[in-house]
Design a protein around this nucleic acid. Structure first.
Length: 423
RNA sequence: GUGGGCUUAGCUCAGUUGGUUAGAGUGCCAGGUUGUGGCCCUGGAGGUCGUGGGUUCGAUUCCCAUAGCUCACCCCA
């Protein structure tokens, strides 16, 4: 039986790697400009971190985690997202004693055991940002502006920003009571999922897509209209801050985010090209998370951006990503003397940062030329006994087909100081 | 967890109303030029026709099961 990549994983092949490298490097430089530093966290953590951090009631923890016991009997889980690990690191490394706010970004893989479909994989890539220590809405605005400008830099259009506030524990518990009072008379008619949500997180009942439930959801009080004074003014501050920067947004009271740790601000960027996996990026504030994970009470906010979905969106919007550069020069050699010389030559050229290759398969001149053509070399040098004897090589421009003799003594110096393309 | 579609060469796909050695295009390798790529011509390698079972004289083709891929629901990046 042929061994295949596990379901939901895929190879990123050399033919497409330049796209990944491009978005990663643009993202990294972009974040640095906002004062964020990269953090690298483990692929796996103790299972408990995600149970506490992401939340026991979430789909992620309930059914999507890659969890196993290691040989020491510890329960280990492949990270289903990045925030929990970053928070753990923040606490473990005492970052709360560094200059606030702490501003971090990351470029990671994440793992969720789900059925795959377009834009959804079991191993997927996320760019993320987390900021700790800032209470006010200014940091919310900065975080969102990172994304807004990032999409602009990449040349994306029509990517909609939706924002919402889901309140703090105080106004949420008051609101939960209100919601429960609203749902309680009809509780018996709700689906099983909703019945269990009723106690744990009644907020999520509103999201239920079940037709039977929808009838009783209609007219339910909205959290956005029931925020406490602090949360209300925070949300107002966020909107004013976005307006101040000219960032367009819509208010979507239905955004809840599937992770339990969110408080106050939640937001997402969605593709307007439809598609069921339209959420390219999601994020929000998590003021209780650091404390929940055992650290000092510290406000935080961040986002995660799906790299697969970002690339899909770039593709569907026709945004071109520059092809990798063509190789500089191929040394085609005939005969042992010439081949030995060619080996020396490419070695020297490589030492001078010139992209040079020569034959490794004892192939005919014709086959070597074919290779140079297929790989897109700008130039070749043909070397045989005659050339070695005369101290010259035949330099060929592969695009035009023009050939001319070049001195072998000076060839390295010439290529060292100027790109082969300019020869 | 639930439902639909698909599965023949590295890739994209034909095909067989069940019948000797299963095809094309493309890609790869080589030759046509014993010192020259692209175009063209010729040849070669490459397939247990997803896997297992059944029906049949005979199955890639019909039936059943199963796996994988894919799309969608839920949820999410």
């Amino acid at each position: 039986m042929k061994i295949q990549a596990p379901k939901g994983t895929r190879d990123i092949l050399p033919s497409e790697i330049h796209k990944w490298q491009y978005v990663s490097s643009v993202f990294a430089k972009h974040c640095e400009r906002f004062g964020y530093k990269e953090i690298r966290i483990p692929v796996f953590e103790h299972t408990e971190l995600f149970q506490r951090g992401v939340g026991d009631t979430t789909d992620i923890v309930q059914k999507e985690m890659y969890t196993f016991d290691d040989k020491g009997g510890r329960s280990i889980t492949l990270r289903p997202e990045g925030t929990a690990g970053v928070v753990r690191s923040y606490i473990e490394n005492g970052m709360f004693s560094l200059a606030m706010p702490i501003k971090l970004y990351y470029d990671i893989t994440a793992y969720r055991y789900e059925n795959v479909q377009k834009g959804r994989y079991r191993e997927f890539h996320q760019f993320g940002v987390e900021a700790f220590g800032a209470v006010g809405p200014q940091i919310d605005v900065e975080i969102i502006s990172i994304l807004y400008m990032f999409f602009e830099k990449l040349g994306l259009r029509q990517t909609g920003l939706n924002i919402n506030s889901i309140g703090c524990p105080e106004c949420r518990s008051a609101y939960h009571d209100k919601l429960k009072d609203f749902f309680r008379p009809n509780l018996q008619y709700f689906c099983d999922d909703c019945k269990s949500r009723f106690e744990k997180n009644p907020l999520r009942i509103i999201d239920c897509k079940n037709e039977g439930c929808k009838r009783f959801i209609e007219g339910a009080p909205r959290l956005l209209g029931n925020l406490c004074e602090g949360c209300r003014s925070h949300f107002e501050g966020l909107k004013a801050g976005l307006d101040n920067l000219g960032i367009n947004y819509s208010i979507d009271p239905n955004i809840v985010r599937g992770l339990d740790y969110y408080t106050k601000t939640v937001f997402e960027f969605v593709s307007e090209n439809g598609g069921s996996q339209g959420t390219i990026c999601g994020g929000g504030r998590y003021d209780g998370l650091v404390e929940e994970c055992g650290g000092p009470a510290t406000p935080g906010i961040g986002f995660a951006l799906g790299v697969e979905r970002l690339l899909m969106e770039l593709d569907s919007q026709g945004v071109m990503i520059e092809e990798p550069p063509a190789p500089d020069i191929y040394i085609a050699a005939l005969g042992q003397r010439a081949m030995d010389f060619a080996q020396q030559l490419v070695y020297k050229l490589r030492g001078c940062n010139v992209w040079a290759e020569t034959d490794l398969m004892d192939r005919s001149l014709k086959a070597q030329m074919k290779y140079a053509d297929k790989k897109g070399f700008a130039f070749t040098i043909v070397l045989g006994d005659d050339e070695i004897e005369a101290g010259k090589g035949v330099l060929k421009d592969m695009r035009t087909g023009d050939q001319k003799d070049v001195s072998l003594d000076s060839i390295v110096d010439r290529l060292k100081n100027q790109a082969a393309k300019q020869l």
